[in-house]
């Protein structure tokens, strides 16, 4: 489903990714972790062609993302669902509108939009808040709306960037349960997170970005003992402030 071959990326002369190679099979649930600045968000942006690599090749579902002409990028992105850390909800639109406006732009009739929006909102247990505005929702609810929006177009691949970054531990676990449910339905899931405890609890495959490269394996095995940001018994590293109660 996802293949990275020798991918490198620099920002203003600073190398973020160096000869990065990894694969994610169709239907897998994979975590991408590492300290702040390791390049987790960059990897995701490269996937949906918000960025282009300095070197290397990236394949998504067999399609070469790097050499893809700009006119084909929308088509690529329509096969993915993207969940952003800052939710990116539209404050002037209701939950239903936030979830369904992409479908509206794709010409899906209102009845079909309602059906699909209700379906995904039911999955994230927000079907009773369809007419609420984002500011009326808690952080966890907003994140679930963002997840519903990512799922409404029935993507083959779900990409989430720090989806639990602003949630307490209980809500973060709830989000992971949802991701697992979605994965069980056949959607490939790639979650970028720095939450080591959560990765450990979920017990899924983990790719750890370190010094521009990737270490493979479950989080316990993959994390190098000397990793400065790793703390045994803690759910997150000290670089990112802990926000849990």
């Amino acid at each position: 489903m996802i293949e990275f071959y020798g991918v490198s990326k620099e920002y203003h002369g600073r190398r973020v990714l160096k000869n990065l190679s990894f694969q994610v099979a169709q239907g897998e649930f994979v975590f991408l972790t590492g300290p702040s600045g390791a390049g987790k968000t960059t990897v995701l942006k490269l996937l949906y062609r918000a960025e282009t690599p300095g070197a290397g090749q990236i394949l998504v579902n067999g399609r070469n993302v790097v050499s893809m002409p700009p006119s084909r990028i929308p088509e690529l992105r329509r096969t993915m669902g993207i969940v952003f850390q800052d939710y990116k909800l539209l404050p002037t639109r209701t939950v239903f509108e936030n979830v369904s406006f992409v479908l509206k732009f794709l010409g899906v009739p209102l009845a079909e939009r309602r059906r699909r929006a209700y379906q995904v909102l039911r999955l994230v247990e927000l079907h009773h808040r369809v007419n609420a505005f984002p500011e009326e929702l808690s952080g966890g609810e907003q994140q679930r709306v963002a997840l519903a929006r990512a799922l409404v177009n029935e993507p083959e691949l779900l990409v989430a960037d720090e989806p639990t970054g602003n949630l307490d531990h209980r809500l973060a676990q709830e989000m992971m349960r949802l991701f697992s449910q979605i994965n069980v339905r056949g959607t490939t899931v790639l979650v970028a997170t720095h939450d080591v405890a959560l990765i450990r609890e979920t017990g899924r495959r983990c790719l750890t970005l370190d010094r521009g490269g990737v270490l493979e394996g479950l989080v316990e095995a993959a994390l190098p003992p000397q990793a400065a940001w790793r703390r045994e018994g803690s759910s997150a590293h000290p670089v990112v402030p802990e926000e849990r109660p």
Partner: peptide, 17 residues
């Protein structure tokens, strides 16, 4: 602006944006 960014990220065709 936000809507346009999101639309582009979710793959809405340019003509529809």
């Amino acid at each position: 602006r936000d809507e346009i960014d999101i639309l582009r990220l979710v793959g809405a065709p340019e003509i529809l944006i």
